[in-house]
């Protein structure tokens, strides 16, 4: 099963490599991992997506908690939550394709953020599946480059993950 886990980490040099190293050393799956400092500059928040049998995911959470730099951990998939991922996609946009791509951008409520005579850069935010759908919808052969942030997430409701 797919799990999305949020981790508050001490914002120390090397904290990210401890998490990445843990996953490679123990052979856990890691689909994506994003990290950035929070409003409290001493803390980083990491969102990671992993898949595995329940026992394995349980072990992943215990091992993450065991890292000295881990302050708090929440498995967002255990409750109602919101996930968002951002994508920047560069497409070849010439002649008739320009209109088609613009329409597609509107349908997906994406934004064109860079334009040249022959290309667009489109920005799209949403659940990962929506991003997949957009990629599928772009006519064959027009994609030049895709950059995805990996999902980030937050639990619904008033409770927050904080120290």
């Amino acid at each position: 099963m797919r799990h999305i886990i949020a981790v508050l980490l001490e914002n120390e040099a090397g904290a990210l490599s401890r998490v990445a190293g843990l996953f490679s050393a123990r052979g856990y799956n890691i689909e994506s991992l994003t990290v950035a400092p929070t409003d409290d500059p001493t803390l980083s928040r990491m969102t990671l997506v992993t898949t595995g049998h329940d026992d394995v995911v349980e072990q992943i959470k215990k091992q993450l908690n065991k890292l000295i730099d881990t302050v708090k951990l929440l498995d967002l998939s255990e409750g109602p939550h919101i996930e968002r991922e951002m994508m920047l996609i560069k497409v070849r946009a010439e002649r008739a394709d320009r209109e088609e791509l613009k329409r597609l951008t509107e349908i997906f409520r994406a934004k064109i953020i860079d334009v040249t005579d022959t290309s667009y850069v489109i920005e799209l935010t949403g659940a990962s599946k929506k991003l997949d759908a957009f990629i599928d919808a772009v006519p064959e052969g027009l994609i030049v480059e895709v950059v995805r942030s990996g999902p980030t997430g937050i639990a619904r409701g008033e409770k927050g993950l904080s120290v």
Binding site: D55, E58, Q59, Q63, N65
Partner: peptide, 10 residues
């Protein structure tokens, strides 16, 4: 160590 528990044997 919580991570020792149910690591290999439930």
């Amino acid at each position: 160590d919580p991570s020792s528990i149910s690591k290999t044997v439930k």
